[in-house]
Simulated scan of single mutants.
Amino acid sequence: MQEVIKSIIDDNRKYIENGVLPEYIPELKKAKKDALGMSIVTLDGEEYHGGDYQYKFTIQSISKVISLLLALEEKGEAYVFDRVGMEPTGDPFNSMVKLETVMPSKPFNPMINAGAIAISSMIEGRSSTGKVEKLLAFFRQITGNPALTINENVYLSEKRTGDRNRAMAYFMKDVGVIEKDVEGSLDVYFKQCSIEVTTKDIARIGAFLANDGIDLKTGKVLVDKKYIKIAKTFMFTCGMYNASGEFAINVGIPAKSGVGGGILATVPGQMGIGILGPSLDQKGNSVAGVQMIKDLSEKYKLSVF
């Protein structure tokens, strides 16, 4: 497996130059554009790594999967999906056009920014700080990495430049989707996106999802299986932004990308996959990372279809 990972990374370096670093979050422009890494964690507990798997990057939209699980555990399906929909949008992840034009007025799904901000507002806690600590503890538990922390520079950069997210949040407050303090909810969202990880952490999250919410080391059920099913379905239908359909056809497994260059993928009952490639395509997905996971899926026939 180590040799396969190395070969896939080497074969796909050529795609890096086809992408760019994101500019709308200034701190992300400082990333190493040619970084490329992969980790695989099997349900037998075996771990395989290659390339820049120790390179730290911020989790960004991959965090939406975990915040959704926590909100479902705390609030239940009825509450969550009364305020956030279950359908793909076909629009960019930061689009706000359908918030007002489609009724009832609520985000289409939890994987777009509007939906994820609404989900972050649902997490229980007396303060935004308490909510973030709860989320961070949840991430640490799932990854088995007690050292996970927030990149303060990225967080502050996101907060300074997050006017579109702020506009969506205040609109959702106006129509009753967000019930809590808007700025506090945004703070939770910006901080969860700024959690710093490696491909190993991402692959462990993928293995946790592949194992239906059961901790690989302890055998403890951390999340109800039905909520894991919901999260994986959203990853499949909405996880790769408005390239999700193409990814489903070409790769065929649940995945979630982030503009930090990461891709989380899960093969139910088999493994979790973590990818890093900060150079992004026009839709916000790692340009080389998508090709890497496509090659892996083809080689091992991972598609669920």
Rank of each mutant, 00 (worst) to 15 (best):
N12G: 05
T266D: 07
T233E: 15
V175F: 11
Q291K: 14
K98S: 13
I5E: 00
M271L: 01
K159C: 03
E152P: 00
D44A: 10
K98N: 14
R204A: 08
F139N: 01
G115T: 06
A265D: 07
A35Y: 06
Q54A: 09
S120H: 03
A231S: 10
V304D: 10
I123F: 11
K6I: 14
G260H: 12
N285I: 08
E158P: 05
K56L: 07
V304F: 11
E17W: 02
I66K: 06
G274W: 09
I249Q: 02
G50D: 02
S194P: 02
T198D: 03
E3H: 06
T58P: 05
V290M: 12
L276R: 04
F171I: 05
D10C: 01
G261V: 12
K200M: 11
G130P: 03
V290D: 06
L264T: 00
S244E: 12
E73F: 00
V182Y: 13
S121Q: 03
S244M: 13
K229W: 04
G144L: 00
C238T: 02
L36G: 01
Y155L: 07
G19S: 06
D174F: 09
K14G: 00
L72N: 01
Y24E: 14
Y155P: 00
G260Y: 03
K159F: 08
D212K: 13
V65H: 12
G262M: 14
Q60R: 04
K29W: 05
K225Y: 01
V221E: 14
G144E: 04
V4A: 11
S61A: 02
A35I: 08
F236Y: 15
